[in-house]
Design a protein around this nucleic acid. Structure first.
Length: 414
RNA sequence: GCACAGGUGGCAGAGCGGUCAAAUGCACCAGACUGUAAAUCUGGCGGGCCUCGCCCUACGUAGGUUCGAAUCCUACCCUGUGCACCA
């Protein structure tokens, strides 16, 4: 990502301008990194009609995570100011694969998995957005006809679009430059991606489009393409990318560092507690409206637990959040057993401990189960078991693997 | 199309006829430690078994050479690079 105001396309981007803006514009820009342009936004906001604020997600994985909620919160702020959120489900573009920030081509997704992911996205997104002020659009609606040759006027749209943009323009972005330099393949489809996303803006007549800072190129392309189609250009606003639990890379399911909105309250709370203290402040800043300066006076552990509660409360409610907190304190701080433990009814008894671990899904294979036993990770009824052996179960027995996996073993059904 | 280089475990990346279930790093799991599921250190990390040893499946795909192949040969598939005009 370049510095704010960097000119990406000579002569086409105004950069951030320093005009005095109406106070409500500042509200809308809370937490943003770049705006193209502030003056444009002030002008549109003064227009006395609800603005159409576009945000697109490609359903490439089944979950939304905390990182997605940063721009979603901004969308929500627009809604609260009376504007309309236009949520684009990129069911078409998901199959193309956004190259933004990528060092290689995405694996192709089937139409079925895209559709399934889209459904779970929609279930999760209204935990943040106001459904009544949201217009949901699927971009296959206009991209399929555009590319399927059923367009009544392909010369004007598809061919025109491709004729007006150049390879140089499309490959100027840093991720492509890197791939070019490292001789990593770039598919034509990926090259076209920004054109598609830009065309989405034309199709929904976006006044504003928001996205992560990694989206800057695509977002600005939307302005170019709206211009091609004689529309007034959208205001582009970018928001910071939230790092994942590793504190290094941006939050992403595929990096395994994501906190999903679908995570259980316990998981969500635990993952937040595992953040470094430094990352905790960033989370506070991007996900809450708390006064960070005041919080810095507190004990880091207390402040982190508070963050956990705030976040879990938002997605699971206050009661679940309190339960997650006490559960965490119980299991990790006091090393007690959690309040709720899954039962596992043994298939037979006596049975080898390694087999029990596998059938109760505490270990994926018997080899792994044996390793866990050897590594002193297995605790049966409060006792370390260091060697695989037969276990007879007459009454419920507590089985623990590692620090946080518990099962209550039940005797086999008669 | 021709030539050259390359396709190895979740990823990156060694190996280039036996000692390779495959170095190393990351990720992941466990143990110790800790306010923490952080950091650090230690161990582990394909599957199976009567586990200090044996068996099965794996190094793009399919065959072949060999007592023995991730390593050599052939064909095919895929990727990258160069050539392609003047000749």
């Amino acid at each position: 990502m370049g510095p704010p105001g960097r000119v990406l396309f000579a002569g086409t981007v105004s950069g951030e301008t320093q005009l005095t803006a109406a106070p409500d514009v500042d509200q809308l820009l809370r937490g943003s990194v770049q705006v193209f342009s502030r003056a444009g936004l002030a002008e549109k906001a003064a227009g006395n009609r609800p603005l159409r604020v576009k945000y697109g997600v490609d359903p490439t994985s089944p979950d939304l995570h905390l990182g997605h909620t940063v721009p979603l919160n901004a969308l929500r702020a627009f809604q609260e100011a009376g504007h309309t959120a236009v949520l684009i489900i990129g069911d078409y573009t998901a199959r193309v694969g956004d190259p933004s920030g990528r060092s290689e081509t995405r694996p192709p997704l089937s139409a079925e998995s895209v559709a399934a992911h889209a459904q779970t996205y929609l279930q999760q997104v209204f935990k943040v957005l106001d459904e009544k002020r949201t217009e949901v659009r699927w971009n296959a609606e206009w991209l399929t006809p555009l590319f399927a040759n059923t367009d009544p006027d392909p010369g004007r749209r598809l061919l025109g679009l491709m004729a007006r943009h150049t390879v140089q323009q499309l490959t100027e972005r840093e991720d492509f430059q890197k791939r070019l330099a490292s001789k990593t393949p770039i598919s034509l489809l990926e090259l076209l991606y920004p054109l598609m996303q830009g065309y989405d803006s034309v199709a929904v007549k976006a006044d504003v489009e928001i996205g992560g800072t990694d989206q800057l190129f695509n977002l600005l392309m939307g302005r170019e393409i709206q211009k091609d189609f004689g529309q007034s250009v959208q205001v582009v606003i970018t928001f910071p990318l939230l790092e994942g639990t590793d504190g290094v890379r941006k939050m992403s399911k595929s990096y395994g560092n994501a906190i999903s909105l679908n995570d259980t309250p316990e998981d969500m709370f635990g993952k937040i507690l595992s953040l470094s203290d430094e990352m905790m402040w960033k989370y506070y800043h991007l996900l809450t409206r708390e006064d960070v300066a005041a919080l810095k006076a507190g004990h880091p552990l207390d402040v982190k637990k508070k963050l956990g509660e705030i976040v879990v409360t938002r997605f699971h409610g206050g009661e679940a959040a309190r339960a997650a907190r006490t559960g965490f304190e119980r299991v990790f701080s006091n090393r007690e057993t959690p309040a709720e433990i899954d039962d596992h009814v043994l298939s037979k008894s006596p049975l080898r401990l390694s087999e029990i671990l596998v059938e109760s899904k505490l270990a994926p294979s018997k080899n792994e189960a044996r390793r866990l036993i050897q590594q002193k990770a297995v605790d049966l009824a409060g006792e370390r078991v260091a060697q695989d052996r037969e276990v007879t179960v007459h009454s419920p027995l507590l089985l623990k693997v590692g620090k946080r996996q518990f099962r209550r073993l039940m005797p086999p059904a008669l």
